[in-house]
Simulated assay, not measured.
Amino acid sequence: MTTHSNGSVVFDNVRKQFGTFTAIHGLSLHIEPGTLVTLLGPSGCGKTTTLRMLAGLEHPTSGRILIGGKDVTMLPANERDVSMVFQSYALFPHMSVLENVVYGLESSKMNKNEARSRAEDGLKQVGLAGYGQRLPAELSGGQQQRVAVARALVLEPQVLLLDEPLSNLDARLRRRVRTEIRELQQRLGFTAVYVTHDQEEALAVSDRIVVMQDGAVAQQGSPRELYEAPASSFIADFIGEANVVPCEVLRSDGGQAIIRVARLEHSVPGRSARPGPAKIAVRPNAITLDAAEAAAFPGSIRHAAYLGDHVEYEVETEAGTLFVVDPAVDRNLTPATNVSIGFHPRGIAIIDN
């Protein structure tokens, strides 16, 4: 089983309206062949509408969509070189696993023997060789998911579309199946567009993440870029939790900015930071808590929750309430304990808004 190599995707100033409501505002996006790009965002942000337009299930109000360099903007779904893995898997319960995978091939008028051979190869590729005669009900949720992926991939699409593919699985199985999907995508080299609202899932599977907000791209980049250098408080809080704290940028020095929060001065990445009032996004695990010192950034424990391998604290400070994740489970900082707050070198970024 091979996939087309030229599976690039281009959205060129795409706009989508439903009556007077604008769901997508002038979306421009380029997805490189052989990459897995995730559309991430809260409910109603436009990610599913974007995927449906790529699949041909919706048509843009204006703008163009190109797949492999071909303009497919107004082509129906069955004339686009894409396959979709749905949230519900959409397997036929009365058909065997092999029959489910063969179905799409036979619908495309392929010879029965060739279709069966390709379907068996597809099941082998997703680690389900020997499962062909079972019914979907005899498989686990993760195995059903892999059947749905195999059924889509045997059609050799330029682009594989995955719509919330893990939402029906429990948390532990979700972790395992997302790893399997990522390994499969990297091994076979197909282009994938993946929709989810789960930030951890997006970080785990993506070459690039496109975060959407109100029908537009809020920020895009690698998982590390979005986590370590969020452009806004929305991104900082959506891609992992963050404390948004007011600060003063004192000066920039060799790609680093020196900031002051309350009485604490700290160095953070900030080549283009300008002196003056600003905000920083501080990850909960980037905050240290020590015995109170008069000259440092003071705080008082408001709430503590022991969670086995870490303790979560809410700390009252003059910069607001901070959420802190502390790996030091052996100590017991109880409510009303005064502490001195510090910052780790990593996990802090200056944000625009």
Rank of each mutant, 00 (worst) to 15 (best):
T3P: 00
V14S: 11
A23K: 03
L36N: 05
V37S: 02
S43W: 09
G44S: 07
G46T: 07
H59P: 03
T61P: 05
L66Q: 13
L66A: 15
K70L: 08
L75D: 01
P76N: 08
A77E: 14
A77W: 11
R80D: 13
M84V: 15
F86R: 01
Y89L: 07
S96T: 15
S108W: 05
K109W: 08
E114W: 12
A119G: 12
K124S: 15
P136W: 01
V147I: 12
V149G: 14
R151L: 14
P165N: 02
L166V: 15
L169G: 00
R172M: 13
R174D: 12
G189K: 01
D207F: 00
I209L: 01
V211I: 12
A218Y: 03
S232K: 05
S232E: 06
F238L: 05
V244H: 09
L250A: 10
D253Y: 11
Q256D: 13
L264A: 14
E265S: 13
R271W: 04
A273P: 06
A273N: 06
P277I: 03
K279N: 07
I287N: 05
A295E: 15
S300R: 10
I301K: 02
A304D: 09
A305G: 07
L307H: 13
H310L: 09
Y313V: 11
V325L: 14
A328Y: 11
R331N: 13
G342P: 03
P345G: 02
